[in-house]
Structures are given as structure tokens and as C-alpha cells.
């Protein structure tokens, strides 16, 4: 979906003051949210968890700190899947209902023998698609022309995994774009942007 997370190329943000001695977790709650996400071996693949940040309303996304977004999606997924209720999350000292049954998500090995659609050096055109579900094509690359730079091998297509659809294992490539293809006259013509993209996102193009 065209969510607030897809910020590549936006103007108007100011880089924050950087703390060179920043610890991994600045506040205890950040450590708790992170660790709970790691320690809960739940039914959600990472692609689905990413999607549940992407669906945050844009104003809420921008006003919520990083681990606050993790907390928001964790609460939402628990409630949606019947693993906890809003009342329980609001009042953890109260009575608890049993959690619904679930199968922990386990990433299956993919078949590396699946043939690639493209070879290194091939010119490609990124499809100009705007799916309402999860996708990993940044908006700035849609409809743009690039060249296959590297073949990373076969990985499951996240668009399918995120929504529990039949797996679509396929090749994923580093596609190189001239900066001027993406940003026009504003770009330094020497610069290049590399974006990792799956077969399904690409058309042959020259």
C-alpha cells in the first residue's frame, strides 16, 4: 500500500541531532517491546509485521517513535488474532482469557533451482503498480528504468507471504538506477541508486 513508511525522496524533513553514545535502547520500554517481539514466536511472518506498521495512519506514524510503532502493531495483531483483548492490554492485573490457538510461523527453505527471468546486465522496467497490500517496491522506483546489477538468488515474494497467500519464490536482484532516472535534473549525474527487487516487480525493458 502507499503507506507513510515509504518516505524515500520526500523533502522537508530535518536530520535530527545525533547522539554518538546512543545505547541500543534509550528507555526500558523500548527494550521490553523489542525483546517481547523477539521472544514471542508468533504466527506472523516479518512481512506481515511490516505491513502492520505500513497501515498506520500517516499522522500517527510520523508522531510515534520507532519502538512505539512496534508496540502499536504488536497490540493490533494480538487483538486481531484473538491472542489478547484490548481490556487485557489495558488492565493486565485483571482476568485473562485463554489465547486462541495458532501455529508459529516458520520460514521454509525455498527452491534455489527456480530459474531467473533476468540476467545480470539486462535492462528492466519496474512495473507501475500500487497494490493495496504489502509490497517492497518503493514509490520512487515505480515506472523507472534500471539494469540488473546482481542476482541475489531465490526468496519468497513478500507480497504473498505478508497476506498468507500461496508462496511465490522467485529471484530477487539488485537493480541499479541512474540517479537522474529517478530524480531528474536535481540528481548528480554520477550517482546511482540500487534497489533490491523481485521478478514479479519487473518487466523487460530497453
Amino acid at each position: 500500500m502507499n503507506g507513510m513508511n515509504d518516505v524515500g525522496g520526500m523533502d522537508g524533513f530535518t536530520l535530527p541531532v545525533r547522539d554518538p553514545d546512543e545505547p541500543p535502547f534509550k528507555y526500558e520500554w523500548e527494550a521490553l517491546v523489542f525483546a517481547a517481539s523477539q521472544a514471542f514466536h508468533g504466527p506472523w511472518p516479518v512481512d506481515k509485521r511490516r505491513f502492520y506498521v505500513e497501515i498506520m495512519p500517516p499522522d500517527l506514524y510520523l508522531s510515534t517513535p520507532y519502538f512505539g510503532r512496534w508496540l502499536w502493531r504488536f497490540e493490533k495483531l494480538l487483538i486481531e488474532d484473538g491472542l489478547a483483548t484490548e481490556e487485557e492490554l489495558r488492565n493486565p492485573d485483571g482476568p485473562m482469557s485463554p489465547a486462541a490457538d495458532f501455529q508459529p510461523f516458520v520460514r521454509e527453505a525455498v527452491d534455489q533451482a527456480i530459474p531467473p527471468k533476468f540476467r545480470v546486465g539486462d535492462d528492466v522496467l519496474v512495473k507501475n503498480e500500487h497494490p493495496t497490500g504489502h509490497t517492497r517496491v518503493p514509490r520512487y522506483a515505480r515506472g523507472r528504468r534500471g539494469t540488473i546489477y546482481l542476482d541475489h538468488g531465490v526468496y519468497d515474494l513478500p507480497d504473498a507471504v505478508a497476506h498468507g497467500l500461496d508462496p511465490k519464490p522467485q529471484h530477487c536482484y539488485a537493480v541499479v538506477f541512474e540517479a537522474s532516472e529517478l530524480w531528474g535534473a536535481r540528481a548528480n549525474p554520477r550517482d546511482k541508486i540500487y534497489v533490491d527487487l523481485w521478478d514479479d516487480y519487473l518487466l523487460a525493458g530497453s
Binding site: G8, R136, V137, P138, H152, Y155, P158, C172, A174, A179, N188, R190, D191, K192, I193, Y194, V195, D196, L197, W198
Partner: peptide
């Protein structure tokens, strides 16, 4: 300048 946007699994 080469910018690598980590959009996938690597």
C-alpha cells in the same frame, strides 16, 4: 555515490 536501498532480504 552509490546508495543501497535495502528493500529485500540482503
Amino acid at each position: 555515490v552509490r546508495v543501497w536501498d535495502s528493500t529485500a532480504e540482503v
